[in-house]
Design a protein around this nucleic acid. Structure first.
Length: 101
DNA sequence: CAACCGGCCTGGA
DNA sequence: CTCCAGGCCGGTT
């Protein structure tokens, strides 16, 4: 299937997030001029290209992890690989690690 | 057309 | 102030 404009937009924006930083579903949604936070998550889920699309860099607005296709465990591991610590299911120093578009 | 969703926010206990 | 439940928006399948 061919990705929609929305999806391409989301993926593109996600690619702007620098190493060591994260973003939220909401912020991402705002970046693509939409209020469909849920759809963004849905988009991540439907994404197959995990190698090129770092969906693990997207978390909830309150700093908690949210979901991940490969499991929360894996998500945490990946984030840690970028120097982002996760404690008790939440990002440490979330506000600092948060990237704003 | 109907159902699903990796969320967010607000209100009540 | 913290915790739980319900409601709600928008886009995909």
């Amino acid at each position: 299937m061919v990705p929609t404009d929305f999806l391409q937009n989301v993926y593109s924006r996600l690619g702007e997030v620098p190493f060591g930083k994260v973003t939220t579903y909401k912020r991402l949604a705002m970046a693509v001029k939409t209020k469909a936070y849920r759809s963004v998550g849905n988009a991540m889920r439907s994404n197959k290209d995990l190698t090129n699309i770092k969906c693990f860099k997207v978390v909830k607005s309150d700093g908690s992890l949210g979901g991940y296709a490969l499991g929360a465990r894996e998500k945490i591991r990946r984030l840690k690989a970028e120097g982002i610590e996760v404690k008790d299911g939440k990002i440490v120093d979330f506000k600092k690690k948060l990237f704003t578009f």
